[in-house]
Design a protein around this nucleic acid. Structure first.
Lengths: 208, 208
DNA sequence: GTGTGTTTGGCAGCAAGCTGCCAACGCAGG
DNA sequence: CCTGCGTTGGCAGCTTGCTGCCAAACACAC
């Protein structure tokens, strides 16, 4: 039956930093999902100081809306520059921290739960890994795809529907030449040299 | 601080069925990740009886290796026929059951943990959803992709590398005609009518 | 060996995709 | 009004992709 040290409930961030902040100092692996920037902000002070000191793997998943805010995008760039692996998800993920696969911290309503029970943490880790896999690398997302998502949804639709250029151009109400020019631009941005590759990359980036 | 009813540890499957079996009877939504067939086998008796009685959403994620076993594949087909949503993952996921987003059961070493703490369950659910999204629908996987994964890895590599047919054919050591025939077969199996679409579908199915 | 069925790959012709060129159009600023 | 600048889309010519046809090569049984 659960003992006090297996699951601890913390009321707010202050308590979290007090009680769990020191855990970060000893961690080799830090994985984190956050929906916006201000969550975990207290913990980030720790995280930002660490990379210089030791080899430490830092992984972060953010919601794509973070990129809409220039300051948010800048913050992610900084993290990336510091050596953290940053990914973007299109779906809400519960705010979660994992330390070395031994400790899980989950946002729990107003406060936090710190889970130490090994089997439970293993389960949560394994689920986090799946969430990690299903999200898009920030580098890719940032440099190329963010604006595409705004300007080319119809183009991507038509392409992934499998129709010919001719039909697609008519559908879009533009000339064949223009349609193909746009496809070429898209492929350029995606860094693809064939349409198959473009399709794969677009899907990979979560554009479809 | 945790109370006894928030997290319960159960030694084995027998105990799980005794203590948690009845929970299934009252559930409207049942989500489950399993790495092979024999886990949860005791619980499955419950699961299989339910669909007829009530509208109940059943979701299951299995590892792809389940399909290698004909009996396993048959079992999944049965589940699918009974109205369960079945998906296939290429990565290990901790064995997990979620009931109505209110109760989580995680395989924990030799036994099981039954989690009722709402905030924790919510977190686990949210991670499970991500795992669900990152896996492939069984129907698609089963009917088309299973054999592709064995016979066409190089083809997929070449296609997604963006090289021309000519280079790719040389790389494979086959004639241009043969290479294109294989691409055509692949597209046929994928149900794609353009290479872009084929790329997107292949990526979607986790073939790349 | 012979027969049978499958796979291969060259060829040829067509369809689709790609791109340079340029006239035509729309639009702000002078 | 005109000038300059960007976008459009037709045309033309080229490359790439697609596929039916068929002979050659291979596999395997008899």
């Amino acid at each position: 039956m659960p003992r006090a040290e297996e699951i601890a409930n913390l009321r707010d961030e202050r308590e979290l930093v007090e009680r769990a902040g020191h855990l970060l100092a000893g961690a080799d692996e830090f994985a984190c999902a956050a929906n916006d920037l201000h969550t975990w902000s207290a913990m980030q002070k720790f995280a930002q100081e660490l990379p210089k000191q030791r080899k430490l793997r830092i992984r972060k998943v953010y919601l794509s809306r973070v990129l809409l805010d220039p300051a948010g995008a800048e913050h992610l760039r900084t993290l990336h520059r510091l050596g953290a692996e940053v990914r973007i998800s299109d779906h809400e993920i519960n705010e979660t921290i994992l330390l070395d696969g031994r400790i899980a911290i989950l946002a729990a309503g107003p406060g936090y739960s710190v889970v130490r029970k090994p089997d439970l943490v293993r389960g949560i880790s394994s689920l986090f890994e799946a969430a990690w896999r299903s999200s898009t690398a920030f580098e890719a997302y940032e440099t190329r795809f963010a604006e595409l998502r705004q300007y080319t949804p119809q183009l991507l639709d038509l392409l992934s529907s499998g129709s010919t250029d001719e039909k697609a151009a008519r559908e879009m109400g533009v000339g064949l030449r223009t349609y193909r020019r746009r496809v070429a631009e898209l492929m350029d941005v995606l860094g693809a040299t064939s349409r198959f590759q473009a399709g794969a990359l677009a899907r990979e980036a979560g554009l479809l």
